[in-house]
Computed example of a mutant assay.
Amino acid sequence: MAAQISPSILSADFARLADEAAAVADSADWLHVDVMDNHFVPNLTLGLPVVESLRRAAALPLDCHLMIAEPDRFAPDYAEAGAGSVTIHAEASRAPVRTLRAIRAAGARAGLALNPGTPVDGVADLLGEVDMLLLMTVEPGFGGQSFLDMVLPKIRRARELVRKSGLDVWLQVDGGVAESTIERCAEAGADVFVAGSAVYGADDPGAAVRHLRELAEGAARGE
């Protein structure tokens, strides 16, 4: 699969979200929305009302990443609000199969996220319930963190599990993805890349997205 880039609005100007979404509309595949509740992670960002408004204003489909303590309760609401993809954390969900199926039933792609210290083999049996597996390459909660190289073997293991399953599961990475790290992620098997400050910290966010895509696709081809 060709590389997909999902710019994270966590690094965007929250006072200009519609403009920031438009800046990458012609170059990105998704718009990544980090929802944090100050319980599951030590930060508070935006919630469902902002997602509903952004959905009306943004041309790109929304890739909602729920870093919240009660994903089983709230995840379907984000799908019903029009998100194209909704990802819950394995560490927070008490009923992941039910919740993932509810997300799909509401019309969105279902994603399952793992923190850096969570083994990927523990969710191998859930691959048939997900459209995307998200591996955090930083500890979730704040943007601008440094990439954790310790996750690279886990990306390779996840790609191996997906390949063996024969399922069409996307493998996303989130955290510290930039020019200096995206090639390593692609070589390890990731195909969907969340990039925050590497996109919105650039003078031209659209050009930054295109450059990151070129790097990822070149690395995936072994160039």
Rank of each mutant, 00 (worst) to 15 (best):
S8I: 01
G84L: 03
N115G: 12
L112C: 13
E91I: 05
Q4D: 08
V151N: 03
E183D: 14
L127T: 05
A207V: 05
L167D: 13
G47I: 07
L114S: 09
P116Y: 01
S165H: 11
A110P: 02
C185K: 00
S180D: 13
L60G: 10
G201L: 04
L133S: 04
A22E: 14
A195H: 01
H89A: 10
I103M: 11
A81M: 06
A90S: 15
S53G: 15
H39A: 14
I68F: 04
M1R: 12
L66Q: 04
A15G: 05
V51K: 01
E160C: 10
L44S: 02
W170K: 15
I182Q: 05
P76R: 03
I155Q: 04
L44G: 07
G111E: 12
R16F: 08
E217R: 02
I103H: 02
L17C: 10
R156H: 06
A15D: 12
I5G: 07
D121V: 09
A190D: 02
A79N: 06
A58K: 00
D191Q: 11
A12V: 02
P61H: 01
A216I: 05
R56T: 11
R221N: 13
G82F: 04
E179T: 00
P71K: 10
A186S: 11
N115R: 06
V209G: 09
R210A: 15
A12N: 01
Q145N: 01
